[in-house]
């Protein structure tokens, strides 16, 4: 499969602090990739590197299989469109903002005006065209910034937390745009989010991050603590969790939410971890049920609707949750 980006041993830091350290990352061309992680995970830093706004401190970045370190970053930047988090619109009208990228690329006035108007209409922003950008609301600003990036029709489009300021209706529209793009497969779309379900629904691939590093797992059921290697135990503030053998180091563990088994009675099985807890909430999300359980730590478990009906459980009830040590990633 073609890759849009290959990152190998990439490090980025400023003021002596390491903000990003990625051993390896491949982002497929013409696919949709979500960069998933909590605030401060390094998502924006990674996007700034992918947008060629930041230069890596060390390591190698390949863009469509070509090494980038000797290429002009200005030229590379023109091959990607990038909507930053909390985007800045220039002190001019909306239409001038949206056509600026085309102007910088030397597109003539007539063509850029036409492309701009088509894009604004397509996103339902036609009415905003003559308005001054600094008079717009946060949501409108975000929409215009998305239009400003999309009008460039670049090979890659990067969106940093694009749903943050959007109202529900436009968020749905944007989700649809991303899904349409995914179906046609004409453009590589990379967006960052802290919302796991959104990432799962919209993206072909998910790249999870925590503290500037790639996390080889989802970012729910994530706990910090210390590993006791001689006992094969990971100790969080509240629980002692059995982990796979032969581990030597790690400060975090993550447990896949689909790998946790839920039952009313304690199961007699080979699963090494079994905890009792109270159901905090039940939440339907894209046809699946997300169950939140407090069992010392907070666990999130995904089960099917059929399983929920079969077990007949409700909020407030006590249940057992069990998982194998092999369902745990330690890092």
């Amino acid at each position: 499969m073609n890759s849009a980006y290959d990152l190998i041993d990439v490090k980025y830091g400023y003021d002596g602090l390491e903000a990003l350290n990625i051993d390896q990352c491949q982002i497929h061309a013409n696919k949709t990739t979500a960069i998933l992680g909590p605030n401060g995970a390094g998502k924006s830093t990674l996007l700034n590197i992918l947008a060629f706004v930041f230069r890596v401190s060390s390591g190698e970045v390949k863009f469509f299989n070509k090494r980038c370190e000797h290429e002009s970053h200005s030229a590379l930047r023109r091959r990607v469109a990038y909507v930053q988090q909390n985007p800045y619109l220039f002190n001019d009208t909306v239409i001038k903002n949206v056509e600026l990228g085309l102007k910088l690329r030397g597109v003539n006035k007539k063509d850029r005006h036409q492309s701009t108007m088509i894009m604004l209409e397509r996103l339902g922003l036609g009415d905003l065209a003559p308005r001054r950008a600094h008079e717009l609301s946060g949501g409108e600003t975000q929409k215009v910034a998305i239009a400003r990036a999309m009008v460039l029709e670049t090979e890659v489009i990067l969106l940093d937390e694009p749903f943050t300021y959007l109202d529900k209706r436009f968020a749905k529209d944007l989700e649809q745009l991303i899904l349409d793009n995914r179906r046609t497969g004409n453009q590589t779309v990379i967006f960052s989010t802290h919302d796991q379900s959104r990432a799962q629904v919209l993206a072909d691939d998910i790249f999870s991050m925590l503290a500037g590093r790639y996390v080889p797992s989802s970012i729910v059921n994530l706990y910090s603590g210390r590993l006791l290697p001689d006992k094969n135990i990971f100790e969080t503030a509240e629980l002692k969790i059995s982990v796979p053998e032969n581990l030597t180091a790690g400060e975090h563990i993550a447990i896949e939410s689909t790998q946790i088994v839920l039952s009313k009675e304690q199961l007699l099985s080979s699963m090494r971890n079994s905890f009792r807890g109270k159901i905090r909430s039940l939440h339907e999300d894209n046809g699946q049920i997300q169950v939140t359980i407090e069992a010392g730590e907070i666990f999130q478990i995904i089960i099917t609707k059929a399983a929920l009906d079969e077990m007949n459980i409700n909020v407030g009830e006590m249940v057992w949750l069990s998982f194998k040590s092999s369902a745990i990633s330690v890092f």
Binding site: V53, R77, R78, Q84, P87, Y88, L100, L104
Partner: peptide, 14 residues
């Protein structure tokens, strides 16, 4: 606004 520089870079300005 420090975002001016980033926004113009992101739009492909030399």
């Amino acid at each position: 606004d420090p975002r001016i520089k980033l926004a113009s870079m992101a739009l492909g300005a030399d």
